[in-house]
Design a protein around this nucleic acid. Structure first.
Lengths: 342, 342
DNA sequence: CGATTCCATGGAATCGATTCCACAGGCTCA
DNA sequence: TGAGCCTGTGGAATCGATTCCATGGAATCG
């Protein structure tokens, strides 16, 4: 591999001048710049990012820590973050915690050792010691979930507002007996979404008995188990799943039991997937604004890296009604509380 | 951030000794090691991977270049590669070409600048100049697709053998009029799969007219377009899609046209998705052995990094019959050529 | 015309960890 | 007892790029 020294020699200048010519320092004669550029091209010179970063104390690299890269929601999040970061000349190192706190800690250390300029993290479970230390030591932004570490900005979706709209939608369609496949209560999203369902049902004068709530872990299998359990606890006419994969599991169970989704039972969940529109019936979702989240997170992180105040942001969610909740007018009449909605 | 120098000072030893104590060099007294270890813990010392790598000329980092991180097949591939690499103490930098040759080239340079020890690449399109240069300059393994660069090992699935099994399956079920939503013919997988279908149909005495083949780009939308086109060209009783996303698109079109999949029309594709078993009807797939591919790629790359001979590997595929191709015995009788299959 | 400013350039220090080399002190063995 | 060895340690060079500082020459000004 050719070094800058080689390039300088080939161009007949000093390494200092070569360095200036490669960057866009104005203090280089056009002639020297030309010679250096040509020499670099001829030698196939690639700058050594390690050496540069060691000297400049800047890597232009950020870490992205996710709980599960295989969940389409996080895949999309990674895609959007990487895309925007690339446009800004930043490289993204993706770390997959694979749903294990220990892996998360391991990756945080890896990122720190690689001297990333900052970290965007979707934390899992309770805030670990390593997570606190890292968030305190270098620019950090939490995204999607809030681990409750004060002083670190958080970019989240408006889960409460979104769930309100979803519950209103279901109630308007005549659903009264709602079951919830909740997310893990160790995550802020799991808690917020469940609480919002409870609160909004109460607002409609409806009750959410404990037997109608089963906690899953955001994975497909837990959606299966939770739904089986829900079906054993009295009659329901709607199920809300706290994420897409658990909704998939719920759909499997409902099908196996010969329950007509969209008719006998409404099904809705948080987080859209491209092919949710495809499944029969198409699934009603509460979609997060993923590009919006990614953009806000990067903006906030960049500010923090530059030493400015970094804001927390709440991004609106978007209800997409599809066939899985049935049509308005079916079954019971539209709720008289219609007018009370926000 | 504490440096090794700080740790050494705190432990009352020289940086040299501190370095030796942090690694597992035997030439350190137990007492010195103890003191250094404690000092490091107290200072929250994290080794600076940049400085270490600059000196040792080893980053213990490999690059993984993918054409589309949002395709579940590549997501799973990334997951498996990262998992195995982590077990071996390697960090993975994922690059997403986002289906653009230009992005691929850009990422190859990024990886080279970061001094990765080696690259695992799923190349797209024709082999670019940058791809050739990179493959020549540092340890490289191609995975899934073969760009035809001699001297660089390739880890691929046995597309030909797999497709043979799939075609045999369809023919055995009485399907005779097969349409193909082919992959891009600029990729080796696209070419191999189409050729294998043609050859195996011929082996059964069946023809594949040009009008029954439409080329897509491995994305959902192209599956939609291709299937619509196929339906306009005479009667078919089966469609083979070269990947999962295009099969999704095909399924959408078939549904919209009221065509009963699994009865009027068989549908099968390459690459399984967890929830393909969920769709109604469940989709028959030719699944790749993703952990097998990941393991073989990493092994081959590691050998190459260590200066040993790195093998090319062909990994077997696995046919998973589901409801989308209908049951045996339906329609025409089982082909008399049954006995001729390999 | 002499003094001052400006500009392009090169030498050398620096980032943080590793490692070659030299060396001190304790040991063994003849 | 002295020659030789082994072990643990520290000084200093090194990896490759950046950047501070100094310098020489050209341009500008009064």
């Amino acid at each position: 591999m050719a070094t800058l020294r080689d390039v300088a020699k080939a161009a007949g200048v000093s390494p200092a001048t070569a360095s200036r010519a490669m960057g866009d320092s104005p203090a280089v004669s056009p002639e020297a710049r030309e010679r250096v550029t040509r020499a670099a091209a001829e030698l196939g010179y690639q700058i050594n990012a390690l050496a540069r970063s060691l000297r400049t104390q800047r890597t232009n690299t950020i870490g992205l820590l996710l709980p599960d890269v295989r969940n389409p929601f996080f895949t999309e999040l990674a895609y959007q973050v990487d895309k925007i970061a690339a446009e800004r000349g930043l490289t993204v190192m993706i770390g997959n915690a694979d749903e294990q706190a220990e892996q998360q800690d391991r990756y945080l250390d890896v990122l720190a050792r690689h001297q990333v300029d900052g970290i965007i993290a979707v934390p899992q479970g309770a805030a670990s010691q390593v997570l606190r230390r890292t968030a305190g030591a270098l620019p950090t932004v939490f995204m999607d979930r809030d681990p409750g570490i004060p002083g670190t900005p958080t970019i989240t979706s408006d889960n409460r507002g979104g769930i309100f709209a979803l519950v209103d939608h279901l109630v308007r369609l005549g659903r009264r007996h709602i079951g919830v496949v909740a997310g893990p209560q160790s995550t802020s999203t799991g808690r917020e979404r469940l609480l919002a369902v409870t609160d909004r049902l109460a607002h409609h004068g409806l009750d959410l008995p404990p037997a109608h709530v089963v906690e899953g872990d955001f994975q497909l299998d837990s959606g299966v188990a939770a739904t089986e359990q829900l079906l054993g606890h009295g009659p329901l006419d709607a199920i809300i799943a706290a994420d897409n994969l658990m909704a998939m599991g719920a759909l499997m169970v409902l099908r196996r039991n010969g329950i007509q989704v969209g008719h006998d039972m409404a099904l809705a969940c948080v987080d859209d997937i491209e092919w949710f529109a495809l499944v029969e019936p198409a699934i009603t979702v509460l979609a997060q604004d993923i590009p919006g989240l990614a953009l806000a997170a990067l903006d906030s992180l960049t500010r923090q890296i530059n030493g400015d105040a970094a804001p927390s942001v709440v991004v609106p969610m978007h209800l997409i009604p599809r066939a899985s909740c049935g049509e308005a007018g079916r079954g019971m009449p539209t709720t008289p509380k219609e007018g009370a909605h926000g």
